[in-house]
Design a protein around this nucleic acid. Structure first.
Lengths: 134, 134
DNA sequence: AATGCCGTTGACGTTAACGTCAATTTTTGG
DNA sequence: CCAAAAATTGACGTTAACGTCAACGGCATT
């Protein structure tokens, strides 16, 4: 419990994750982040940092910010009643389903790319080009 | 070689893949599809259909249309010289790298969702709710 | 001949996810 | 203490990926 007390300015966090401060403010505007304030300035803690990581992962997977927010909200469980929990469970299962579909898509795409890749290598080989294409 | 000779009107193809005709025209405008013409009307063959499948898969994976086009172009190999082939190989490897990263992201996300999922099930169990949440 | 039903090409509208100023504090090093 | 660097809040611009609407041209049926 020492590293966890680290805080970040908006620019520090932005630089670390290769985004702009504008992006972080935008995410806050969209209710994806809720950093504390020191006067006017935003001050991010390790939890905000972890949330940002999740957001960016969702972004890399092609989800919209709204979808990402819904996924993040899934982690705030246990505060509602039974019906709330059931709802969360349903949404969570739906997310899992789409992610599994994406995984299947990825594996299909990878297989095809690797195949084409091999064809090219054979072509280059026929033309007398060695495996110096690293 | 009989099914391969099937052709489709724009609306047929659109319906089959749950997109609008507008989308198919848009993809053509962006040089992702090149259907033949019968007079003015577009006429799609099995190859166009396969390309569309690849396009939509790329879309599900969150790639931009430009990126998708580049990926599709990777399949038109063998028509260039050695340098071209090398270039294609490099791009192909880059694609593979980002796809593998996506796959890693997906597996991390899946693990976390499944974990939260189990927590919810436990909570529901404690509250006396059975496994009727299918 | 008129009524629909595709199909076409523009042209313009829309939403998401920021970028880009501008004007104004706030914070910080010397 | 003061200038420079960094932070803030608007406001407007931009790009991608289509949607929507208008105006038009074949045909096929009624």
């Amino acid at each position: 419990m020492d590293m966890e007390s680290r805080t970040y300015t908006i620019r520090q966090l932005a630089r670390e994750f290769a985004v702009t401060p504008r992006t972080l403010r935008f995410y806050e505007d969209k209710d994806l982040l809720h950093p504390a304030r020191q006067g006017q300035s935003r001050i991010y803690n390790y939890r905000d940092r972890a949330r940002l990581q999740l957001i960016l992962r969702g972004r890399r997977l092609g989800f919209s910010l709204i979808e990402i927010k819904e996924m993040l909200d899934l982690y705030n469980l246990g505060d509602g009643g039974v019906e709330q929990l059931k709802m969360t469970l349903r949404k969570s299962k739906a997310r899992i389903a789409t992610l599994e579909r994406q995984r299947a898509d990825i594996e299909a795409a990878l297989a095809e790319l690797r195949e084409g890749n091999n064809q090219i290598k054979r072509l280059l080989d026929e033309k007398g080009v060695g495996a110096d294409a690293l």
